[in-house]
Nucleic acid binder design. Structure first.
Lengths: 192, 192, 192, 192
DNA sequence: CATGAATGAGTCTTCATTCAT
DNA sequence: CATGAATGAAGACTCATTCAT
C-alpha cells in the first residue's frame, strides 16, 4: 500500500515539474528534493529519466480519458454526448493544467505513429470516445454525413489546440472571443 | 558582404539542425562542424546559443511572412485573397519544412504575449494579413459577420496546426481525409 | 541444515555470475535476484561483497583439489599418476567451467604470495599433488632429473593456461592443434 | 606537434594508472588530475573511457611489437632469431612493466577472436614474427617438424605467461628456477 | 530470517562558453 | 577572423551497504 502511494506521489510531483520546466530542465534531483528523498531512491521506483516521464504522462492521460469516458456514458443523444465531452474535457483540464502544459510542450504525445507509440492504447481510447459520438450522430442524422476517421482526427486536434491556447498560454481575454468564434464556426460546419 | 554571407549560411544551417534535433539537442559544435568552422568562431557572429536560435527563427519567419504578403497583394476579392493566402502558405512551407518543424517543436513562437515577445513584430504582421482579408470579406458581405480578432486567432491557429500535421508528422494517408473534412467543416462554417 | 543449504546455493549462484560477468559487474542484486531473495538478505550469510567472492572461490577450489587428490590416490606409478591427474583435471573443469572462467578472470588466485594469500592452503595442497608425482618420478628414474620446485610451478602454470584456453576461450578448432603440439613439446622435454 | 605530444602524455599516464589500478578503478579524473588538466578536457582527445583504454593499450602493444620485429630482423638463423626474440621481449617488458601489468589484468588482449578483435592487426603482427621463425627453423631442419599454427599459438601463450609470472607477480626467487626449468623443457622438446 | 526502502558516494559524460595565439 | 584547447558546472545513473519493521 505504502509503495503504491509513494509511487503516486512521485508521479504527481514529476508531472508538476515537467509541466513547469520541461523534460530537459527537470532534473531527477529536483523531483527527489521536492519529495524529501534522494535522487538514487527515485531509481528504486523508476528505471530511467525517460521512464519516469512516460509513467508520469501515461498516468495523467489515463485519468483524463477515464474521466471523460465516464461523463459521456451518462448521456444518450449524440449532440448531448458531444457537448458533455467538450465540457468535461474543459473542466478536467482546468483542474489539471499541468497535464495540459506537458502536452503543449510535447504534442507528439497525441501523434499516433504507426507501430511504436508511447501511449498507443490511451490515444486509441481517447479518439474512440469521439469516434463513437460522431458515428452515432451520423446514424441519428443529427450530424452531416462525413468521413468519420478524418473528422475525428481533425476535431481531436482542433480541440486539443483550443484547450492549450485557453489554459496554457492565456493571451488576455482575447482567448475567450477566439473560443466563441471557433466553436461557432465548427458548429455551423458540423450540425444540420 | 562576406560577413553577411557567412552569417546567412550560419542561420540556414542552424535552422536545419534546430528543425531536426530541437533546441537542446542541437549543439553549437554541430552547427560549426556542418559549416567547417569551429565552435568558438560561431561566437563571433552570435552572442550565445539563445541568440543564435532567435536570429535563426526570426529570419525564417520574416521570409515566410513576406512571401505571403506579396502573393495576397496581387488579388482583389476577399475570397480570392483568402484562397491565395492559404495556397501560398501551403506551398511555401512545403518548400521550407524546416521552419515548420521548428514551429512544431516550439509553438510559443506564435504566442503574442503582451510585452516580452520574441517575434512580436513578425507575429503582428502575419496576423495582420489574415485580419485584413476577413475585414474586407465581412465588409463585402462575402463572409458571415464575425468578431474579427477572435476569428483571426482561431483560423491562424487551426491553419498552423493543419500544416504541422500535414508536413511535420505525416501519419500516412489519413492526413488527406483529415484535411478534406477539416476544410469542409471550416468552409461551411465560414462562408455564406 | 537449512542455513548451510541456503549458503551453498548462494555460493553456487555467485560462482556462476562471477564467471559470467566478473567481480565488478556482478552485483549483489544479481545474485539475490537469481535466488529469489533480496540484496539485504545476502548480508545475513556474508559480510561483504569481497567476502562473498572469497567464500565462493575458496569453496570451488577445494572441491576441485579434492577430486584430483582422490583420483591420484588410486594409481601407483608416477607416469600413471601424472596421466590421471591431467585427465581428472581436464574432466573436472569440463564439468565446472564456471570455476575456470573465474580463474581466467583473476589468475592471482593461484599466486602463492608469501604471507597474505587468500587461498594459501588450497594452493599449497594443489601444488603438493603435482610435486609428489614429480618427486616419485625422478626417484623412480621415470623422469629426467630436475629442480622439483621450479618444474612444479612451471607445469602447474602451463597446464592451467592450456585448460583456460581450451574451455574458456575456445578459438575455433585451432585450440586442438595447439593442444596437441603443446603436449608433444612438453612430453618430449619431460620424459626420457 | 603540441597536440600529438599531449595525446602521447595522456596515453602514457593512462597506461601507468590502468596498470596500477585496473580499468574500473582508474577514473578519468585520476588521469586528468595526474596531468594537471580537467576531466572534461580528456574528452577532447578521446571519445570514451573505453576508447582511452583501447588507444592506450593499442599504442603500447604496437611499440612492443615493433621493438621485437626490429631486433629479429638483424639475425639470420632460426635459432638465433628465436633467442633474440625471447631476449628482446624479456628486456622490453622489463622496462615496460606497465604494459605487462595491463596484459595480466586483461589477457583477452591476446585472444584472437574470429571477427571482432580489438587489437587484431597487432596480434596478427606479433604472432607473425614467431610463425616466421618456426617456419624458417623447420625448413632449415633446425627444428623438429611441427604444425606451425598450433606451435605458434602454444609458444606464444607459454611465453606470455612466463613473462607475466616473472615480472608482474614476482614470487621471490622461485621464479628464476621456474624459468630455467621451463625453458629447458621447452628447448628439449623443440630442438633436435 | 527476510524484506523493502533508502542512502551516499562515486563516476562518466556533455556542452556552452572563454581566450590566448 | 579563426582556431585549438581548456574549463566548469551540471546531471544521469550505479550500487554496496544499512536498518527499521
Amino acid at each position: 500500500m505504502a509503495r503504491v502511494d509513494r509511487e503516486k506521489r512521485i508521479l504527481e510531483t514529476a508531472l508538476r515539474l515537467f509541466a513547469q520546466y520541461g523534460y530537459k530542465k527537470t532534473t531527477i534531483e529536483d523531483v527527489a528534493g521536492e519529495l524529501g528523498m534522494t535522487p538514487g531512491n527515485i531509481y528504486f521506483y523508476v528505471k530511467n529519466k525517460k521512464d519516469l516521464y512516460e509513467k508520469t504522462v501515461g498516468n495523467a492521460l489515463r485519468h483524463w480519458r477515464d474521466s471523460i469516458a465516464e461523463a459521456v456514458l451518462m448521456e444518450q443523444g449524440a449532440k448531448e454526448k458531444f457537448r458533455v465531452m467538450a465540457e468535461r474535457s474543459f473542466q478536467y483540464l482546468r483542474d489539471n493544467q499541468e497535464l495540459l502544459a506537458v502536452i503543449s510542450r510535447d504534442p507528439d504525445i497525441f501523434t499516433v505513429t504507426p507501430g511504436e507509440d508511447r501511449f498507443y492504447d490511451i490515444n486509441v481510447g481517447a479518439r474512440g470516445i469521439l469516434r463513437n459520438i460522431l458515428t452515432q450522430g451520423v446514424r441519428e442524422k443529427t450530424f452531416h454525413a462525413m468521413d468519420i476517421e478524418g473528422a475525428t482526427e481533425f476535431l481531436f486536434s482542433v480541440y486539443m489546440m483550443l484547450l492549450i491556447k485557453a489554459y496554457v498560454k492565456p493571451e488576455g481575454e482575447g482567448i475567450t472571443t477566439m473560443f466563441r468564434e471557433g466553436l461557432k464556426i465548427i458548429s455551423q460546419g458540423l450540425g444540420k
